[in-house]
């Protein structure tokens, strides 16, 4: 679930919503700010400048099982979260053809064979290219954790590096198992 933090009191209150791994949220509310902390995960910030609708997802591709190449990350889940984000934005009046994307995260925090961060980053770039979505900016890979704040109604993003300790322990989060691939014949 998302954490909703309305602060500070007084002034024009900003509604800060934390986008957790496995989530995709969209809004056109000028008071909403979507925030997340990324290690090897990637966050996609999409913005429609005409409809003034923005949204963010936060995903981590599952590592391949031992019998597969370390390069064969499972992209089903990343694709699901991309589509979920786009659909949420369409519901608020966005048009896919107008979307501009900014990508963040994908750090390789630990030196290992599976460069998880790079795999997440590569998937995100490839998705945007295949879908014809303009990639306006990226701050991807490297070795630093990142904190991202996104104002969905304006498309403004602030990104800063942060201590690795700020990153929640993360494993790929699957959608509710009761629904995954569920077949219902009428």
């Amino acid at each position: 679930m998302s954490a909703l933090d309305t602060s500070p009191p007084g002034r024009s209150a900003i509604k800060r919503i934390t986008v957790m791994q496995g989530e995709a949220l969209a809004s056109k509310d000028p008071q909403v700010e979507l925030s997340t902390v990324l290690g090897s995960c990637v966050a996609t910030c999409l913005f429609d400048p005409i409809a003034k609708v923005g949204g963010m997802n936060h995903f981590l591709l599952a590592e391949p099982p031992a019998h597969l190449s370390h390069l064969e990350f499972d992209e089903h889940y990343g694709l699901f979260l991309m589509e979920l984000l786009i659909n949420e934005m369409l519901k608020l009046g966005a048009a896919k053809s107008r979307l501009k994307a900014r990508l963040y995260g994908g750090a390789n925090m630990n030196s290992g064979l599976a460069q998880i961060g790079s795999a997440n980053a590569a998937f995100a770039r490839r998705f945007l290219q295949q879908e014809g979505i303009v990639q306006a900016f990226e701050d991807l890979e490297g070795q630093s954790a990142r904190r991202v704040h996104f104002q969905p109604a304006t498309g403004r993003v602030r990104c800063s590096t942060t201590a690795q300790a700020a990153i929640p322990k993360q494993k790929p989060v699957a959608p509710p198992q009761s629904d995954v691939g569920q077949v219902e014949l009428f």
């Binding site: 959608p175 995954v180 691939g181 077949v183 219902e184």
Partner: peptide, 16 residues
């Protein structure tokens, strides 16, 4: 005829 929730499972989709 029916409804399948993404992300799909290839085996379940083929069976349907």
């Amino acid at each position: 005829t029916g409804w399948i929730v993404k992300p799909f499972n290839a085996d379940k989709l083929a069976a349907a």
